[in-house]
């Protein structure tokens, strides 16, 4: 498996709205912490170390 960098989310606008909505009312520190937890959750779901390594590289 390799990292998919093509559009892959159905209703991207809807997801983006939900992503921002979970941060509503949080302080900057709380938002940062939420983002960190989210990255861990998603990384665990992906699991594949090759893909995760590629993702780390893509985001740098």
């Amino acid at each position: 498996m390799t990292l998919n960098l093509n559009p892959n989310i159905n209703d991207a606008d809807g997801f983006y709205q939900e992503l921002l909505a979970v941060h509503d009312g949080l302080s900057k520190a709380e938002s940062d912490a939420l983002n960190a937890r989210l990255i861990l959750v998603l990384a665990n779901h992906i699991g594949d170390r090759t893909v995760l390594r590629e993702a780390l590289e893509a985001a740098k």
């Binding site: 998919n4 960098l5 093509n6 559009p7 892959n8 989310i9 606008d13 983006y16 893509a58």
Partner: peptide, 11 residues
């Protein structure tokens, strides 16, 4: 600017 998926979010 780096990957096609990002463009899908630009609104």
């Amino acid at each position: 600017s780096r990957a096609p998926f990002g463009q899908a979010f630009v609104n």
